[in-house]
Computed example of a mutant assay.
Amino acid sequence: MTDRREVAIVRRPGQAPSVRDGLAGLLAAYHLRTQAEKGEAVAGVDGLPDRYREEIADPQAVFVDAVVLLALSGDTAVGCLVVSAPVDGRCEIKRLWTDPAHRGRGIASSLVGAALVHAAESGVRGVRLSVWKWRTGAIALYEGLGFTVTESWDEREQLVCMERAV
């Protein structure tokens, strides 16, 4: 069993994420789970919408302007989070995912905390994110970290938009 102290959060500034660092597998799990939760389960990555398959196949190209944070247990990626490049004084958190076998150890909180540090270092005034309304655990995590629900900037139904100052 991996203990919380053995998990490190690494930021890859100037280093593009790659398939070999474990990010692709985490993104695949995230997108497959999300599709299933939306009632649109697919058998595998090939059944995902194009934009999600592109993230999995070539995260280096898709996240070229973003900062990718990985939670590592030894050499194994067990969590990820993407921080978009700043736009209008804000950046956005996307793709927060912790491998289910490693949940309950504070990895998601550590990833969000590292994202907030990165945002502060980038000089932005705020961080925003969107989360599906049925992900009540994630919403509670974000609220506990100071995020509040705000007016939606996304037209998809069942998304909760949240924001916090840095």
Rank of each mutant, 00 (worst) to 15 (best):
R53A: 02
E151A: 12
I56K: 10
A120Y: 02
E121W: 06
L27N: 05
S130H: 12
V83Y: 02
D21V: 03
V19H: 10
H102D: 02
E151V: 08
A61S: 11
E92F: 01
G113Q: 08
E54G: 01
R156F: 07
V67L: 15
C91G: 09
E92M: 05
A101S: 15
R105H: 11
S130E: 12
L81F: 10
P86T: 03
A101T: 09
A120F: 08
E55K: 07
E40L: 15
T76W: 08
V131D: 11
V19G: 09
A120L: 12
V149S: 08
Q60G: 15
R51Q: 05
P17L: 10
P100K: 13
A57C: 09
S73W: 00
T150M: 04
D65T: 14
D99M: 00
V127H: 07
S122W: 11
V160T: 06
A71S: 03
D65A: 14
V78F: 03
G144D: 07
V45S: 00
R51M: 03
L69N: 01
H31L: 01
V124G: 08
S73M: 04
D99G: 02
S130P: 01
H118C: 10
P17D: 09
V149K: 08
A28Q: 12
G126F: 04
A120E: 13
D50W: 06
H31Y: 07
D75P: 03
E55T: 04
V42N: 03
R90C: 13
R164E: 08
S152R: 04
V42L: 12
E6V: 00
D99W: 00
A101N: 14
G39Y: 15
L32W: 13
A57T: 10
L81C: 14
P49Q: 05
R11H: 07
V166M: 04
D75C: 10
S73V: 04
G146L: 13
Q15T: 11
E143C: 07
A57H: 03
V19T: 15
Y52G: 02
R11N: 08
V87L: 15
A115Q: 11
P49D: 06
P17Q: 10
